[in-house]
Amino acid sequence: MTDPGARRAAAERAARAGGEVAASLFRGDLAVETKDNETDYVTRADGEAQEAAVEVLRERYPDEPVVGEEADARKTVPETGRAWVVDPIDGSHNYVRGGRVWGTCVAAVRDGEPVAAATVCPALGDAYVAGEGPTERNGEVVAVSDRADPATCSVAPTVWWPSDRRDEFARAAEAVVTRFGDLRRPGSVQVALAQVAAGRLDAAITNVAVNPWDSIAGAHLVRRAGGRVTDLAGDRWRHDATGLVASNGAVHDDALAAATEI
């Protein structure tokens, strides 16, 4: 197996391992704590799922750094060299309330750019994976939608605007509903990006900086599915960018205009 192929396989194995742990505790009796705000939930499932994913990565790549949301994992992506990025449960708000829209996500990066990614959604029965080739869902190739008329498109304003930025949340919703046919908000950045990759959503937008564990895997899935991912300036998106606009490409200018209006 080539190195890109091996990293794609490792990302999927790690995401599945973490997802299995999270699924085993899903809808169980978990003590729930909050981190940065009143809806930024964390449970022991987050830590245990991350440990399971990292253990898989360490078996084959013991010397490569892991960027992760929980515990003492590194929080920034190295600008050079190879690394891994792990989000044990993206969509924690859904998870702790028994909602099915959440995923375990793993990305392999080289010099800050993703080269492989997996987003596994156990409660939905979906696993999205991409390496150098096209994005697959459950082993079948998927692609972004071909919708070019914004009036027919569904778009997600994504990430979370904290309590002191609720006016931006409102403007994000307005920017979407005045330009596009409908608004969807899955409650998980990574699942929203996976849905863009699979053509279930036509775009996902935000004007805020996005954590690498919330975004890198999904951005790679969208690109490998034929979509476009940029920052607010319309330049190629990177993990340290402000804002994220992911789309099928055909309506990217409209999605970008909506994001910059926020």
Rank of each mutant, 00 (worst) to 15 (best):
A127G: 09
S188F: 02
Q195F: 14
N211D: 04
K35V: 15
V245E: 06
C105H: 01
L124V: 09
S24Q: 08
L256D: 14
R7C: 03
A255V: 11
D63R: 15
T76Q: 15
L183A: 13
S247A: 14
P157M: 15
A53C: 05
A52I: 01
A83T: 04
A255Q: 11
Y41R: 12
G125L: 09
R27S: 11
A148K: 02
R223C: 05
P62C: 08
S215F: 04
P4D: 06
D202M: 08
T104Y: 05
D202P: 10
W160M: 13
V229T: 09
T206K: 10
G181W: 02
A151F: 08
P78S: 12
S247D: 09
P4Q: 03
V77R: 10
V86H: 11
W161S: 06
N37A: 13
A22C: 04
N211Y: 11
A53S: 11
G91I: 03
E33N: 07
T260P: 14
Y128M: 01
Y95I: 04
Y95Q: 07
D202V: 02
D235T: 13
T135Q: 12
R7I: 09
A49I: 00
E64W: 09
A151S: 10
L201P: 08
R74N: 12
E261P: 07
V42T: 06
A73P: 00
L57D: 07
T242W: 01
I89N: 00
K75P: 03
R223L: 06
R74T: 13
P78W: 15
R82L: 14
A192E: 02
A15K: 02
E48D: 13
Y41I: 08
G199R: 02
V144T: 09
S163A: 15
T43I: 01
G181P: 04
G28R: 03
R27N: 12
G234R: 09
E132R: 12
D46L: 05
I262Y: 15
D111W: 14
D182S: 15
I262D: 03
E38V: 13
N94C: 04
K75T: 14
H220F: 02
V229K: 01
V144R: 12
A45K: 02
E261C: 11
R100C: 07
A118E: 08
H252R: 10
P65L: 07
A31R: 10
P78T: 14
